[in-house]
Computed example of a mutant assay.
Amino acid sequence: MPRIRANGLEIEYEETGSPDDPMILLVSGYMGQMTEWPDRFKQALADTGRRVVVFDNRDIGLTLAIDDPALEDRVPPPMEDLMQGAAEGQPVHERVPYVLDDMAADAAALIEALGAEQADVLGLSMGGMIVQLMALNHPERVRTLMPVMTTSGDPDLPPSEPEALEALTAEPESETLEAIGDLAVRTYHAIGSHPDLRAPDEDLRAGAIADLQRANRPLGLARQFAALLAQPRWHDRLGSVEQPTLVLHGAMDRLIPPEAGRDIARRIPGAEIEIIDKWGHDLPEAVVPDLLNRILPFLERTSKAATA
């Protein structure tokens, strides 16, 4: 797959559709490589005249953490220290290699590096936080905003269910491929969709193993999580977002409860929100039609409004 330099990084990316069409940038969440996006989803967007771009965020997949190789082995502070420091109002962002603001700058620079003025931006989970920060910090690069299964960052919102958070941060029983696959199955049973939508266990297991074989970046995962915890809060800035916004959330999301999505929609003027039944904190093939049925009309409406 191609690689391009943006914001001081060599970013691994992939395109579907014509480079002459308007761009839609899909931003993955914590631990998510660009391979997580279903081909059916990307192709459906491309078939409606979109240049679909996916990429590996810094520190995951085949995109490196930072431009300085000497910092590649830098270990972030313990999660508990960052959480306590943030709760006490300490400037914990100064103690980590990067924060989500830096990842938003990466994504904005990628749009420009690929020759586009703007893009429709859609982000999942941590990626949904990143696209909000893109709209706030780099509004000139964002045409429309789609935060998905994510939060405004308000610390007063309902927390994750304990079982879901434990599943997200659990470690495999061993370093074998079998253990990695088993952990993925347990994780998505805890945070994923209703069985009517959730991917079959064999697909979950195979996907986790394929991702590990593509890139194994344990320090990268630790630094990404540190970036998430140390990011200065942004919820009180969302009232300044001017881009058309569609918020999507699953009714069964136990990791980031639906109230978090509703909070984003309340804070952004004119934002639309759709809560999808039986959907959890995952991206199974079975939910793709529901997503497209909401995203495609939104893109069509906003495109017509922009040219009216």
Rank of each mutant, 00 (worst) to 15 (best):
residue 173 E to I: 06
residue 278 K to T: 07
residue 247 V to D: 00
residue 9 L to C: 04
residue 27 V to S: 03
residue 136 L to S: 08
residue 32 G to E: 04
residue 172 P to K: 00
residue 30 Y to R: 00
residue 259 E to C: 10
residue 132 Q to P: 03
residue 142 V to C: 11
residue 16 T to P: 03
residue 181 G to Q: 01
residue 49 G to Q: 14
residue 110 L to A: 10
residue 139 P to G: 08
residue 150 T to M: 06
residue 103 M to L: 11
residue 63 T to Y: 02
residue 264 I to Y: 00
residue 226 A to P: 03
residue 128 G to T: 01
residue 56 D to T: 09
residue 176 T to E: 13
residue 153 G to N: 02
residue 274 E to G: 12
residue 199 A to R: 01
residue 253 D to I: 01
residue 159 P to Y: 07
residue 205 R to F: 15
residue 195 P to E: 14
residue 196 D to M: 07
residue 187 T to C: 13
residue 66 I to T: 15
residue 228 L to W: 07
residue 17 G to Q: 09
residue 142 V to E: 01
residue 237 R to T: 06
residue 213 Q to C: 12
residue 157 L to P: 04
residue 53 V to H: 00
residue 181 G to P: 03
residue 165 L to W: 14
residue 281 H to A: 07
residue 155 P to D: 08
residue 20 D to T: 14
residue 235 H to F: 15
residue 23 M to E: 05
residue 93 H to C: 06
residue 46 A to Q: 13
residue 206 A to T: 06
residue 96 V to W: 02
residue 171 E to P: 00
residue 260 A to R: 01
residue 102 D to C: 08
residue 168 L to H: 04
residue 174 S to Y: 04
residue 259 E to L: 14
residue 139 P to L: 03
residue 146 M to I: 10
residue 255 L to C: 12
residue 102 D to H: 09
residue 245 T to P: 05
residue 182 D to W: 04
residue 242 E to P: 00
residue 67 D to Y: 09
residue 66 I to N: 10
residue 81 D to V: 09
residue 1 M to I: 12
residue 169 T to M: 15
residue 161 E to F: 11
residue 188 Y to H: 07
residue 256 I to D: 02
residue 170 A to T: 11
residue 261 G to L: 06
residue 208 A to V: 09
residue 87 A to E: 12
residue 174 S to T: 14
residue 242 E to D: 11
residue 174 S to I: 09
residue 223 R to T: 06
residue 94 E to C: 12
residue 31 M to D: 04
residue 231 Q to T: 12
residue 141 R to F: 12
residue 280 G to N: 05
residue 168 L to S: 05
residue 148 V to Y: 00
residue 294 R to I: 09
residue 199 A to F: 00
residue 213 Q to K: 15
residue 166 E to R: 15
residue 180 I to H: 03
residue 306 A to R: 11
residue 303 S to G: 10
residue 2 P to H: 14
residue 12 E to I: 04
residue 303 S to N: 08
residue 117 E to L: 13
residue 16 T to L: 07
residue 258 P to R: 03
residue 226 A to D: 05
residue 67 D to P: 02
residue 40 R to F: 13
residue 272 E to L: 15
residue 125 S to H: 05
residue 181 G to V: 02
residue 15 E to P: 04
residue 83 M to E: 09
residue 38 P to L: 14
residue 156 D to G: 13
residue 19 P to L: 13
residue 259 E to F: 06
residue 183 L to E: 02
residue 172 P to E: 05
residue 155 P to H: 08
residue 125 S to C: 12
residue 284 P to R: 03
residue 61 G to L: 01
residue 197 L to D: 05
residue 113 A to F: 11
residue 126 M to T: 08
residue 40 R to W: 10
residue 4 I to A: 11
residue 102 D to R: 01
residue 141 R to S: 12
residue 268 I to A: 00
residue 295 I to Q: 02
residue 247 V to W: 00
residue 234 W to C: 06
residue 164 A to P: 00
residue 151 T to N: 09
residue 136 L to M: 12
residue 67 D to H: 14
residue 49 G to K: 13
residue 189 H to V: 06
residue 34 M to Y: 04
residue 128 G to I: 01
residue 86 A to H: 10
residue 36 E to R: 10
residue 298 F to R: 09
residue 232 P to C: 06
residue 222 A to D: 10
residue 260 A to G: 04
residue 212 L to I: 10
residue 133 L to P: 04
residue 57 N to Y: 14
residue 255 L to N: 03
residue 162 P to D: 12
residue 82 L to W: 05
residue 122 L to P: 02
residue 305 A to F: 02
residue 157 L to T: 12
residue 193 S to E: 09
residue 192 G to S: 10
residue 249 H to E: 07
